[in-house]
Design a protein around this nucleic acid. Structure first.
Lengths: 274, 274
DNA sequence: CATTCTCGGTTTGTTATATGAACCGATGGT
DNA sequence: ACCATCGGTTCATATAACAAACCGAGAATG
């Protein structure tokens, strides 16, 4: 691994829980020598990627990332474009919604939206990187990614997070194939006990899968009827986001999704008649 | 300069005009060897800081910066907090407003807001780094920075941008001292001909100057009366932003600003009476 | 008040890594 | 057919990163 990668990997240790990290802690977290960490952090600080704050001279992310993000959004509106859709979806479903994108070989959370509808909701604060094998988002992405990428991911150790987590590559592969056949993915308690989720893949301009949109809810609230409604709404929102991003849904997937929408439309009409 | 700095400096060549940069162009812009650029960009790409796009495999900023910016904003709301104030100010004044922060030893633009009030407005698209000696923002920051920092900045070559640009360190130093005495800075055509601006310094929690809020307008629209109104409004907005950032205006500056507000209040009353 | 942590930061010889000139095949314009 | 330029690669060389040991300061502990 090159020096640049090491330095920038330091930034990966920041998360919503741990916004402040000291030098020694960086050394511990990264496994790098303290002197190495120091030099890297000094360089990062000089460039504004981190800044030192207060009493203990701990480090936190610096203002430079804001500038770059603003530039990126000006060139390629992505987060700004998607967030309103997320918020709308969270509100209409009354459940937590989150959006993740493929960065390198990791699936990373780009944003989320809560609903105030219920006192109990799935929290996403501490989730940064989504395991492919244990989340509906991960399965959704795998389901529409090249076989080569699937193999790479499934070759990595599949960590057990709950009693329900699938840790057998063969079992996961089967799920991935199923996802590819139905156009979306579901997960039941694989990431956190009693939390189910439904995820739809997102596609870029070349119809490559580049992320996922997911709804996560307490298993108890996901009745069969709810699932149908949610599935349809998330599909619609995923379509919106893909459109906003200038993406292109692969034809095969498109027809799969059409089916879902029609089915729901049908049920909604029935619902009105009742 | 360390490798990390070099690699991250590559990202500085992106701007709103040039969102896509090829390998050779990077080499030219940065003065680094093409092979060096390639390796660095490859590493940056792997981490998602840049991504390669389309036909010519050119590079652009990647989604990773969005993630980091979202984290930073979650920890230290800054841009998100300030932007509404900028927009409000732009609207109420009918002029372009911009916000810059000190990153390392550079003053970099973090955001701006336009007003639709006039067909002719000052554009900020292509401004990335503000020269200290040639902008009101720069002078505002210098006016409230430690002497050591002032010296460092004034020791650098002072580039002439327009016929009005002050390029004599002694003259600039005099302006800086004056700024310190009046609590804000003005600039007339020093950055771009026929563009005047008024800037107020911003302060962090330790009362250190960390940026500036500025209004830039065509010189013709800045009548004496307008200047007074603008000065008061920008002062108010700067106060708001500082408060939102958890900053602290130094006592001396605070009394200076009080004077400005009172003066304007007086004039506003007169205006109403007329 | 002395002891002992751990903290952020620094030093130094060693070694691994970044560097840069030349090169390659592809592409596109003339 | 030519030439220029593109993104990307190779390899000997030199530079910059590395790890361990060391500092002084501050907080906790006795």
């Amino acid at each position: 691994m090159g020096t640049v990668s090491k330095a920038l990997s330091l930034l990966d240790h920041f998360n919503r829980q741990q916004a402040l990290i000291g030098l020694s802690e960086f050394s511990r977290l990264s496994g790098l020598n303290k002197a190495t960490c120091f030099r890297m952090l000094s360089e990062l600080a000089e460039l504004g990627f981190v800044e030192q704050v207060g009493r203990a001279r701990e480090y936190r992310l610096g203002p430079q990332v804001l500038r770059l993000a603003a530039l990126r959004e000006a060139a390629v509106p992505m987060r700004d474009a998607a967030m309103p859709v997320l918020r709308g979806l969270a509100q209409s479903l009354g459940e937590t919604v989150h959006l993740s994108v493929l960065i390198g070989e990791k699936l990373r959370m780009l944003g989320f939206a809560y609903s105030p509808a219920h006192a109990m909701a799935v929290m996403m604060e501490d989730t940064d990187t989504l395991p492919f094998h244990a989340t509906s988002s991960g399965l959704a992405v795998l389901g529409f990614s090249p076989l080569l990428f699937q193999d790479q991911v499934l070759a990595r150790p599949l960590v057990r997070l709950t009693a329900q987590t699938l840790t057998d590559p063969v079992a996961v592969r089967a799920r991935v194939v199923a996802v590819g056949g139905q156009g979306y993915a579901t997960s039941a308690g694989g990431f956190e006990a009693e939390v189910d989720s439904i995820a739809f893949p997102l596609f870029d301009g070349q119809s490559r899968c580049c992320g996922a949109l997911a709804v996560a809810a307490p298993a108890a609230r996901l009745t069969a009827a709810n699932r149908l409604l949610i599935r349809a709404e998330v599909a619609k929102a995923a379509r919106q986001i893909i459109a906003l991003w200038g993406g292109q849904v692969p034809p095969g997937v498109n027809t799969l999704w059409q089916g879902l929408l029609n089915g729901t439309l049908h049920r909604q009409i029935i619902g009105v008649e009742r």
